[in-house]
């Protein structure tokens, strides 16, 4: 086993999916010869040919519409939207079309589509490149929404997503692409699409996070440990559906919870997690459910990301407040 970057793990996962099923197609803007603007599809066109891995004209709605037509003629599309901020051009295809296909045809038709798109801040990108848009898709019946926080999960999750027979929105955290490295087996393995991961066990507080905030939670946990506050960290991995079993189990043990998201606080994943907890585990809590999230402003100009994105210190402060409630 070798240490690999998060993005290399994704490339390996797509490679395996392409090798295993000749119906798998990878396409999007610059994903062919160029290997993607982040090299996520590097070398795949050379290996599988232009029929399987190809670039498309610059039109997101066209790309996802193409995916639907390919899906209903027997293909397994893995389209890429170059940056999450551009996905709004194609929301009809996601929200009004592919998510409903199984429903509308009573399972006689389906849409085995995996939409890959980078999201999340911290890399000083231009406007509308790093927006956290998961709240737009977690409320859509018929869609699964996942995001890995480690290289290992990235490979296992992308394979599961591509193999799944329903549409999956696969969110790749931009900041983690090259900053995160981990042990990644060369061979095929899968990570389930609907299971959270207990990243670190603890007894005093449950910190629930996903994507780029998992490592912030880990940093916070180290500081807290010095003061004998033992934090359990759950990486959601799946933003829809929520793995409430894992969340409730942890809360029964720690009696305190802090939910962390990089996105703006309003109507986010954190709100869904909080209401699931209030419905299913409120009686185990010794303190209010607390959310750490970005302010309800438009995504910041690059120079202000450092004051906008929730950092480990914010998580640390929230935990101290909760455990001392």
């Amino acid at each position: 086993m070798a240490k690999k970057t998060y993005i290399k793990a994704i490339t390996e996962g797509i490679d395996i999916a392409l090798a295993e099923d000749p119906k798998t197609l990878v396409f999007g803007e610059d994903v062919g010869k160029n290997g993607g603007v982040f090299r996520a599809t590097n070398g795949l066109q050379e290996k599988y040919g232009e029929d399987r891995v190809f670039s498309t004209p610059l039109a997101e709605s066209g790309i996802l519409g193409l995916s639907i037509g390919l899906a209903v003629t027997g293909w397994r599309p893995v389209p890429e939207i170059q940056f999450s901020g551009f996905i709004f051009e194609a929301l009809d295809s996601i929200v009004s079309q592919m998510s409903r296909i199984r429903f509308q045809y009573n399972g006689t038709k389906n849409a085995p589509i995996t939409i890959r798109t980078p999201y999340g801040g911290g890399t000083h990108t231009a406007e509308l490149h790093a927006d956290n848009f998961e709240n737009f898709v977690i409320g859509v019946p018929g869609l699964r929404v996942v995001t890995p926080s480690s290289a290992y999960d990235a490979k296992g999750l992308i394979i599961s997503a591509i193999e799944n027979n329903d549409p999956v929105v696969f969110l790749e955290n931009l900041r983690l692409y090259r900053s995160v490295k981990g042990e990644v087996p060369d061979d095929k393995y899968t990570v389930p699409l609907d299971k959270a991961n207990v990243v670190q066990e603890g007894s005093d507080v449950t910190i629930i996070a996903y994507g780029g905030e998992v490592s912030e939670a880990q940093k916070a946990a180290k500081k807290l440990a010095k003061d004998n506050i033992s934090a359990e960290i759950i990486d959601l991995r799946s933003l829809y559906p929520l793995d409430t079993d894992t969340i409730f189990e942890s809360i029964k043990k720690t009696h305190h919870v802090v939910i962390v998201q990089e996105a703006q606080k309003q109507a986010g994943v954190g709100a869904e997690v909080a209401s699931a907890i209030s419905e299913g585990a409120i009686m185990y809590l010794d303190a209010p459910i607390t959310r750490v999230a970005a302010p309800n402003s438009v995504y910041p100009f690059p120079q202000a990301e450092n004051v906008w994105i929730p950092a480990s210190k914010d998580i640390e402060d929230a935990v101290r407040e909760v455990v001392n409630y």
Binding site: G65, L66, S67, G69, L70, V72, T73, S96
Partner: peptide
């Protein structure tokens, strides 16, 4: 959704070609 069938049809036609 007016127009959605046009992008989807392009995909359907490509699927037919690839098949």
């Amino acid at each position: 959704i007016i127009g959605a069938q046009m992008v989807e049809m392009a995909g359907g036609a490509l699927g037919i070609k690839k098949n």
